[in-house]
C-alpha cells in the first residue's frame, strides 16, 4: 500500500468537549474486509455503519472484531431518527448500546434528521424544519439519548432537497443551536454542505462560519451525482474539486478534525480510496503549512 500514515496527535481545542483526534480514516465496507486484514493498510481509523452489525453472529461480527483489534473504530448510525416526532426508540438504543459495549468506539454519531414516524423507517435522512419547535424537540431527544448511552453523541448535517415554508432560521443556526443546547458534538459532512448549498442556493462558507469550532468532532467527505437542477448525495463517485476546496476552508477554520471518506455504492478497490485519502492528507498538510507561515 502506498498510503503514508500521519501520526495523529492528541489534540483538543481549549474548552472543547471533543474526543481525541484520530487522523484520516475510511468508512468500513464489506468488499474490503479481506484486503484490510491481509494488508493492514495505512488507514488511521474506520467508521462502521452501526445497524449493519445489529446481528447475532457470523461474518459481520467476525470481521468487525478482527478489524477492531487493529484499528480505532467509530460507530455511525442511520436509524436513530433523532428528530422524529415519535418517542425516542429505546429498543434501538438498546441494540446500539450492546454494540458499543462490543466495539468500544471512540465516539458514536448519527444524523440531524428524522427517518420515519409511527414506527416506520423510510431508510432516508429526512430533513427537519428549522424552527424553534424542532430545536427544542431534538434537544430533548439528544438529552435522552446521551443519558441512555452515557456519552455525548455527534450529529451530522444531511443533504436535503426540500426547504420547508415554516423554516425560520438557517440550517447552520439550527445545527449550532441544537449542539450547544444539548451539549453534543458535530459531524460536519463537507459534501452535504456543498450539495445543500447548491440545492437551496446558499453560500457554503457562511455555513462553515456559523458552526462553533470547539464542537466539530469529525468531517465526512464523499462524492455525489449532479442532475442539472439539483445534486443528489449518492456516495458513489470520488470527491469533486469544489468539495476539496470547501474541505480546505474547513481545515483552515476548524484545524485538525478526524476525517473519513464515505463510499457506499460503486465501491472501488481499497487502493483507490487510500489514494483519495492521501489527497485529503495533502490538503490538510498544506493548509497547516500555510497557516504556520
Amino acid at each position: 500500500m502506498t498510503a503514508t500514515p500521519t501520526s495523529p496527535v492528541s489534540f483538543r481545542k481549549p474548552g472543547s468537549p471533543c474526543h481525541r483526534y484520530l487522523g484520516f480514516g475510511l468508512g468500513l465496507r464489506t468488499p474490503h474486509y479481506d484486503t484490510i486484514l491481509e494488508t493492514r493498510p495505512a488507514v488511521d481509523w474506520f467508521e462502521i455503519l452501526s445497524e449493519n452489525y445489529f446481528c447475532a453472529g457470523g461474518k459481520p461480527l467476525h470481521y468487525l472484531d478482527r478489524i477492531r483489534a487493529d484499528y480505532p473504530v467509530v460507530m455511525h448510525g442511520v436509524s436513530l431518527s433523532i428528530g422524529s416526532s415519535d418517542e425516542v426508540n429505546i429498543d434501538y438504543l438498546k441494540q446500539l448500546k450492546t454494540l458499543a459495549k462490543r466495539v468500544e468506539p471512540q465516539w458514536i454519531s448519527d444524523h440531524l434528521c428524522w427517518t420515519g414516524v409511527a414506527g416506520n423507517n423510510l431508510h432516508d435522512l429526512m430533513p427537519l424544519p428549522y424552527t424553534e419547535e424542532a430545536v427544542a424537540h431534538v434537544v430533548s431527544h439528544v438529552n435522552q439519548v446521551q443519558e441512555y448511552l452515557g456519552r455525548r453523541i455527534a450529529l451530522e448535517n444531511v443533504s436535503s432537497y426540500v426547504t420547508y415554508k415554516q423554516s425560520a432560521m438557517a440550517e447552520w443556526d439550527f445545527l449550532r443551536e441544537i449542539a450547544e443546547r444539548a451539549d453534543c458534538l458535530i459531524l460536519l459532512d463537507i459534501n452535504n454542505i456543498y450539495v445543500s448549498s447548491f440545492n437551496h442556493g446558499f453560500d457554503p462558507h457562511l455555513y462553515l462560519e456559523g458552526i462553533p469550532t470547539e464542537r466539530v468532532q469529525q468531517f465526512h467527505l464523499a462524492g455525489h451525482r449532479h442532475c442539472d437542477d439539483y445534486i443528489i448525495d449518492t456516495h458513489d463517485e470520488p470527491v469533486i474539486d469544489p468539495v476539496w476546496q470547501l474541505y480546505a476552508h474547513a481545515v483552515r477554520r476548524f484545524g485538525d478534525v478526524s476525517t473519513i471518506i464515505e463510499r457506499d455504492d460503486n465501491i472501488p478497490p481499497l487502493e483507490e480510496l487510500l489514494a483519495e485519502l492521501d489527497h485529503a492528507r495533502r490538503i490538510a498538510a498544506s493548509v497547516e503549512t500555510e497557516l504556520a507561515a
Binding site: 416526532s85 427537519l128 424544519p129 424552527t131 415554516q166 442556493g201 446558499f202 457562511l206
Partner: peptide
C-alpha cells in the same frame, strides 16, 4: 431561497412537527 433571511414570524406548536 435566501436561507439566511428569517421567514414570517410563526409560533408553531409541537403538533406542527
Amino acid at each position: 431561497i435566501d436561507a439566511t433571511k428569517p421567514r414570517e414570524a410563526r409560533t408553531p406548536t409541537s403538533k406542527d412537527l
